[in-house]
Each structure stands twice: as C-alpha cells, then as structure tokens.
Nucleic acid binder design. Structure first.
Length: 882
RNA sequence: GGGCGCGUAGCUCAGCGGGAGAGCGCUCGCCUCACACGCGAGAGGCCGUAGGUUCAAAUCCUGCCGCGCCCACCA
C-alpha cells in the first residue's frame, strides 16, 4: 500500500519540486478563451525585472494564487497572467552604478550602447524573480509571460501615446516639475514622498530700492533667494498698500525686484510678504506668470548653483549654498529671525531618497488629466470597480479630484522613448512607426525627442496590453475586464488609479472589477523590513526551512482585510510547517486504515455513527465558511476555518473517537468509519488546495481519483449534512471527556491511573453515552462508564456536573481530599458570581419586558443549571467537611 | 492643514448589541499503537479613557489620550 512509503514527517522540498514540474509539463496553468466557460482573470502586478522576491511578493502571490486556484477548480477558465516591469529609474540607476564600478562613463559609452548594457543586464538577472515566483507554487500561465518593454508592449505604448497626443491629452509644456538631482530626471507628483523634517524658517530683509524702508520675507530654503525676481503681497493687505509698484534691492545681484500684489499670498502667514522665486517654486511660478516677473534659474541639473546666480555662489552644492547665503546675509545684517527647528514637509525621491527640487527644467511632457479623472471616479462610485476594503474608495476619489497634470517625461535612457519627432522647420509630430521624414515638410533631418516615458505610463496599460491591445484579440474580448487586481495600498495612486483612467479611455471599460488592497508585510515587531534594520526575511529562506505551503498558509492566516500591516516572523512559518505535518500524519492514519480505492463513497445514513454524522456536519460548516470567506476576500478567516476544522475537530476529536470503530469494529463499522474519514479528508484537501497546493496534491494523489487536485472539482455544498442533533450529542461527549480529564489533571492522576465513572443523565444523554461508550472511555481513559437515570449512592465520590448530568468518580483513598475541596470551592465561587449576575438580570423588570423572550429563557435556564450544580457540589463539600 | 485606520490575554490579532476568543509564548503532566513539527490540562484580560444611547455595550454615538498611515504648492 502507498502509505508504507509515507515518512513520519512531511518533507516539502522534494514534493514541491516534483509537483511544480508536473503541473508545468501537463500545462495545467494554461488558459485559453473558451466560450462555454466563464472567464476569471488576474494580471500579476509586474515586479521589477532585476528585483528579487521579497515578502510583499510572497503575500501577493499567496492571495492571487488562492483566488485563481479556487476559480479554476470551480470550472472557470482561470488565467493568471504574469510579467515583469522594466522599472525605468530603478534599473537605470543600477546599471549606471555597475558601470561606475567598472570605471565607464555612460556619456562616453553613448545612449545605444548603454541601452544594450541594460538589456544584457536584464537577460542575465531578469529571469531570477520569475524562478523565485515559481517556488511559491504560483499557478501563472508562464507561456504568457510579458515584459513592459517587449515588442507588443512597445506598440501598445506607442498607440496609447499617439492616441492621447492626437486627442490633445498629451502636451508639452514648461512649468515647475519635481527634479531629483541625484537621478537627474523629472518625477511625477506621485513619485515624490513627503517627509517631515526639522528645518529652519528664516526671515530676512530686502531693503527697498529707493532706500525708504524694507520688506521682510521668510523661507525654509534660503539659497533660493538667489533666484528671487520679485516680492508679492496680498492685494488687500493694508500694511503694504503703499509698497506695491515699488521694488526691493537684491543684496547680491545688481537687480531690483518689483513688489507685486497677488491673491495667492496669505496675509496671515509670517510677515504677509512673500519672496517670489519663479524657477524654484510652483506657486511663485504662477505668481510670476501673472505679474510678468522674470525667471531666474539658479540651479543646475546636478543640484549645484548655476551661472544664473550671483557669482560668489556659482558651482556650490545646494546645501553648501544654503550655508553660504545665510552667512552672507548675516554679514549684511539682513537676517531678521531664525525659527529652529521648524518642522515642515520636504519632497524626497521615491527611488533614491534625495530631496527633490521644484525646478524649471525646460519643456516636459504632460498628460492632461481633467478628461480622465471624471470617468475614473464615476466608475468607482457606480461600483463598476469595487474596492476591498471599501474604505479606499474615499481616498481614491479625493486623489482624483485633486489630481494635477501628470508629468510623463523622464530624462533617462532606459524606457519607452517619447515617440515624437522634430524637424529643423519647427514641426513636431507623434508617430506609431519610426518615421524617415517630417510629416509636415518632408525634411529628412528629423530628430526624436530624447526623453523616455515614466515607467508607470507603460504599467498603466498592463491589464489590456498584456491581452493583446490595441488589437481586438480573442484574449482581450474574453478576459477583459479582468476580475480582480491584488495589490498593496502603496501603489493605489501610482498605478491602480492610472490603470482605471487609461483603461476607460483607451479600451472603453474598467480594467478590473475588484481591487483587493492588502497591507504591507512587516517584521514581528511591526517594523518595516529593511536592509539597514537587518530584519528582512527572504521568502526563499522560509521555503527552504519550512516549505512553500507553510509560507503560504502563514501569510494567508495573517491576511486580515482591515489591517494595513501584516507582521510576519519565522514563528508564523513554523506554525504553518507544523500544520502541514499535522495534515500529513492525519492522512497517514486514514490512508493506512481505510481501504482507499478511488473516490470515497459515503455509507448510507443509517450506517453512520454519531461521530461520523458530527464530522460530516462540522465539515460542511467548514466548507461554508471557507467559501464565504474567500468570496469576501477574508483570507485569514478561510485559513483559520480550515485549521480549526482539521486540527481541533477532525484530528483531536474525530480521528480519536473513530479509532475504536476503525480498528476494532465489525467489518461494516470499519468500512463506514474509513469511508467517512476518507471522504471528509479528500474534500478538505480540495478546500485547502488553494492555500497549500503542494501538500494537498501529494496527499490527494494517494486517493487515486484523477490527474491532479488542481483540476478536480471544488467541493459542492451538502447542506443536508448539517446535523444539530449530532453536534449537540458530541458537544456533550466532549464536555464530559474534558471534565474528566481536567479532574484527572487537577488531582495529578497520571494516564495510567484507572478511573471508573458513574453518570446520572437524562434520556438523550444516556443514549449518547450508550452509543459512544467506547469512544468516551478511550478519550477520558476510563475502564468503566456506568450510566443511570438515578444518581445512586453519591457518598465517597467526587462530583462533576456536565450539562446537567452528574458525574461521580469514586474518591476511595486515591485522592487527596484537600485538593478536592479546593476544586469545589473554586468552582462554587465561580458559580456564585455567575449566578448572582444572572439573578440580578432576571430581577430587572426592564430586562424581562424588553429583551427578546429567547434571551430571557436562556438566562433562566442558565441560572437553573448553575443552581443545580451548586446544590450538587455543596452536598459533596458538606460531606467532605472542609 | 485635511482624511483614514488602530488601541481586547506576554506578543500578533479575530470578535463589533445579550455567556470574553484564536495562534504563538508561558506553566504543569504525558514518548497514549498518525504526528514530541505531538497529546492532555492550565494560568493569564476593570476589551485605552471619560461621558452618552439602551432592559443590556468590548460591540452603537461623542469628547479626550496614545500609536500608525495617507493626502496637501502655506513661503
């Protein structure tokens, strides 16, 4: 029999390798449009090609695979479409760093050679994360693996760009953008992280040009005063009424700065006068536009002071300039006040963490968003896209409402190049194909825009570009809109919102029906996992130590919907490993004891023991809960339901109570017990498969039912198995066993000490005890279990009350009366407290008249039971005389 | 400055109107014929705080305190 080969402990490594290879070979991950089946589709949020798998991915994969595997079993044509992202800045920076180590200057290397280097890098390291994702057990259709820079996506990007350009939704403009001096590129607003820092607010003085006085202004970036071209006040501000139209004198430049009036100035802040630095502040830029002030760009791309600034400061690093400007102003006695520390938010690059400069960088490309945000908002309000948890809807719509035009040009080499060409005659045009000549004048002397597009410009097309868009492919028609997008909240705006906008505009429908937003994986102490903290857990380490199923189970178990943090430690994975082993051993028992030959068939109802009926009932309850939980994306509840059922119910009570029938019963009893245990186990394996695919496949194979549990049917409902009678009988048996065990433990009686028990019980209970005599005696370790309608002689016995039944255990010399007295007194104290509370409630007229009758009845019954137990225990206490 | 989430057992979290729960950790006893990656029994909680609604509040409402997050062009 197969079970002879089953090891004492589950060993995941070999099983995982073998089954993943088999699934791939058999093409079980593949999905194709199939008209008579309903589609289910998830696109994988593409990780950075050169990245490595981290716990965040592990969580993503666990949840997505759970959804896909279940839908596949439910008969959907389930497609999980994987891919990777070229991650513009991130990858470019890596390759530049590598070149620097080799002493190569990218400029000398040239653009084309550089890009070749990146592709080489991608070929070399790009596949690694895919191999790592496979270790998770993810059932992606790898034949469809896509890359945001592959040919199809290149075309999708071109079509999207040209379409938006022709519709006037993409334009080129000059305005303040976010500039990262380290990566030397522009960033979109979403790529800037605002962090609170302790800076200083410096108030300094501009003397009036005519010498008649002065104006005080404040700033946190004193070096920007080098680029000031004016001073602004609120038009209604009395204090400055006479000054508008005059000018102040710049202390370091031979220049007068006009004083202008502008609504944007808040007269209640600081002195009410604002220095205007048009090239380094978007607000000031607009004021300058309105007032016709000059722009002076005092910063170079690398963050040093440019030649437009007064001479003494040129070439200085921006932080050095900050100090020097401060010193210079102080020498001139122009510093009025310094507030320090001054806490305020400063933008940082989301890639490298450098402080971002608002900067006038020359012309940049923008997506005009006003025609895109409305439909995207409406789709979410209508529920065409639904967020889980729903509370993300609010932040999403607010974000859309406040969205400004999206800067999509990046001064990088790695990425989708802006498909716009210029000719010497001043013509500009966007083109799907690389053109040979100017579309307007035919000049062959054309040049392509040097910039590349924001990585997120291609990412936003992901749900449809991967399905063949812009072509109306069968895939697109069948799988689009996709079913659910699973991701962390950190890219809700960066990515999710943009997919919705572009999907609606370009394809005409939402990209996905559901957006499932989960928390971020943290360490055990709920800290962010980071290399500098040294608390990073590598999913591959977890897989090697405990197995992929253990990792998946532990993540699923932790993934509660409302949480924004998911604290993970090796302990969690260890618990998963233990669970896997528990199931392995339960299967070892069942497969060894039952005659397994194909799909288990349940015995007729009248051949089922109370334990078997109870097991079927509990199993059905578990199935219901798992279904409901996964449908509502409550992964933790699904995992917990399976754990509770398998461990506490199936193993601890079910298997233990079935052993007498299974091992010592008549052939019919053995057959019935084996069949029920096998039937329930086999179905539970299927319910568990989405969470723990490898273990369940390995065990399920031993039933010899079909090719793979992956493509077996999802367990169908059996509401007729719910059995209140069996549940109440087993509830009584469990309570009785537990009471005796507890008594034994309290008296320090080892398992070897024989106990004989007499129970006075009502009719139903007597029937249960009769039917489960052997089972109860086995679990409670009793040699005798006598059952009677009348208590008989109670003297000399310890008394336990279990659901109204009186349990008598002879004290005869074995037991320490002092211990018994302690036990009784403790219990009586508990009873007294509960009874008092209960009596008080029942004395309350309001309770009796207003509470639901069922609640009142329940309270009465409770009090009655407590009083009965009290009487029994008090009698024993009196008898013992303590 | 706006918005959101969270404060329940030592830790991480479920519960969200009528008997305080789980996993891990801890204590005690067990190598009981699937499993010591195990079995059994326990200890441990004025459910952040003050008020309100209700016959009844961990659960609903309000204030406060404490954490955390997101958004924001107040110099």
């Amino acid at each position: 029999m197969v079970t002879e080969t089953m090891a004492r402990a589950y060993e995941p490594a070999e099983v995982e390798k073998r089954w993943y290879a088999t699934w791939m070979e058999r093409g079980l991950f593949r999905a194709e449009p199939t008209p008579d089946r309903k589609p289910f589709c998830i696109v994988l949020p593409p990780p950075n090609v050169t990245g490595a798998l981290h716990m965040g991915h592990a969580l993503d994969h666990t949840l997505q695979d759970m959804l896909v595997r279940r839908k596949r079993m439910q008969g959907f044509e389930a497609l999980w479409l994987p891919g990777t992202d070229h991650a513009g800045i991130g990858t470019e920076v890596l390759v530049r760093r590598q070149l620097a180590e080799e002493g190569i200057d990218p400029q000398e290397l040239g653009r084309e050679a550089f890009i070749e280097r990146v592709w080489a890098w991608k070929e070399r390291y790009g596949g690694r994360i895919v191999e790592q994702m496979k270790r998770m057990g993810s059932s992606c259709d790898w034949d469809r693996l896509r890359f945001t820079m592959d040919e199809g996506l290149q075309r999708a990007v071109r079509v999207a760009f040209v379409g938006l350009y022709d519709d006037g939704l993409i334009y080129r403009g000059e305005r303040i953008i976010n500039w990262c001096p380290t990566d030397q590129t522009a960033l979109s607003d979403s790529e800037v992280e605002h962090r609170e820092v302790d800076g200083e607010l410096i108030t300094f003085r501009y003397p009036l040009a005519d010498g008649s006085g002065h104006v005080d202004v404040a700033t946190t970036r004193i070096e920007t005063m080098l680029g000031d071209t004016g001073v602004a006040v609120h038009p209604g501000d009395e204090r400055y009424r006479g000054l508008v139209g005059k000018a102040v004198r710049h202390p370091f430049a031979d220049q007068d700065l006009p004083i202008v009036a502008d609504q944007a100035v808040d007269p209640s802040f600081g002195t009410g006068a604002v220095k205007v630095t048009p090239a380094h502040d978007s607000n000031d830029f607009e004021i300058a536009e309105r007032a016709g002030l000059a722009r002076r760009n005092i910063l170079s791309a690398d963050g040093t002071i440019s030649d437009e600034a007064p001479k003494p400061f040129r070439g200085l690093d921006r932080y050095e300039a900050r100090k020097r400007v401060m010193e210079a102003l102080r020498e001139l006695d122009l510093i009025v006040a310094v507030e320090r520390p001054y806490r305020h938010a400063v933008g940082h690059c989301y890639r490298c963490g450098s402080e971002v400069e608002p900067w006038l960088s020359g012309k940049q490309w923008f997506v005009a968003v006003e025609r895109l945000t409305g439909p995207a908002k409406q789709a979410a309000i209508d529920g065409r896209v639904a967020f889980f948890p729903e509370r993300w809807l609010g932040p999403y719509t607010t974000w859309l409402d406040n969205l400004r035009d999206w800067n999509i040009s990046r001064q990088l080499w790695w990425g989708h190049r802006v498909p716009v060409w210029y000719c010497p005659n001043g013509h500009e045009f966007a083109s799907m194909e690389d053109p040979d000549a100017c579309r307007e004048c035919g000049s062959a002397d054309i040049e392509q825009d040097p910039d590349v597009l924001d990585t997120w410009f291609s990412s936003q097309l992901w749900p449809f570009s991967t399905l063949g868009w812009p072509d109306e492919t069968e895939d697109l028609t069948y799988f689009y809109p996709t079913s659910v997008l699973v991701t962390g909240y950190e890219i809700l705006y960066l990515w999710v919102a943009r997919m919705i906008m572009s999907g609606l505009y370009l394809v005409g429908d939402v990209p996905f029906r559901h957006v499932l937003i989960h928390g971020l994986v943290r360490d055990e102490q709920n800290r962010k996992m980071s290399k500098s903290l040294g608390n990073v857990i590598d999913p591959l380490d977890v897989i090697e130590r405990y197995g992929a199923d253990a990792l998946r189970y532990s993540l699923a178990r932790l993934a509660t919907p409302e949480q924004q943090n998911i604290p993970f430690g090796m302990r969690e994975a260890e618990a998963g490993r233990n669970f896997a082993n528990k199931i392995w051993n339960a299967a070892r028992l069942v497969l060894g004891a039952a005659q397994i030959d194909g799909a288990p068939v349940l015995p007729p109802e009248d051949a089922r023991s109370p334990v078997e009926r109870w097991l079927l009932s509990r199993h059905e309850a578990c199935r219901e809960e798992v279904d409901r939980a996964i449908d509502e994306y409550r992964f933790a509840d699904a995992a917990q339901a399976l754990h509770r059922f398998l461990w506490s119910e199936y193993c601890d009570w079910g298997l233990e109570m079935e052993k007498p029938r299974l091992y010592e019963g008549s052939p019919e009893e053995r057959e019935a017990a084996g069949s029920v245990l096998a039937w329930v186990l086999e179905r539970t394996l299927r319910l568990l498969h989405p969470i723990m695919p490898f273990l369940t496949e390995e065990l399920w194979q031993r039933f010899g039912i079909g090719d793979s549990i992956m493509v077996s049917d999802w367990p169908e409902p059996h509401p007729e198995h719910r059995d209140a009678d069996a549940e109440s009988r087993l509830g009584f048996a469990e309570d009785l066993v537990t009471a005796v065990r507890s008594f034994r433990s309290g008296h320090r009686l080892g398992p070897g000490v024989a106990l004989a028990v007499r129970v006075r019980a009502d009719g139903g209970q007597r029937e249960t005890l009769g039917a489960l005599d052997e089972e109860i005696r086995r679990l409670a370790r009793l040699d005798r279990l006598d059952v009677a309608e009348e208590p008989g002689e109670a003297a000399g016995h310890a008394r336990l009350v279990v659901q109204g039944a009186e349990v008598l255990i002879p004290l005869a010399g074995v037991l320490d009366p002092a211990v018994e007295c302690d036990r009784l007194r403790e219990r009586l104290a508990g009873i007294a407290e509960q009874a008092e509370r209960s009596a008080r409630k029942l004395d309350n007229q309001g309770f009796l008249s207003k509470a639901a009758p069922a609640v009142v009845d329940k309270e009465r019954a409770k009090l009655g039971a407590l009083e009965e137990e009290r009487a029994v225990l008090e009698a024993q206490l009196a008898e013992l005389g303590c």
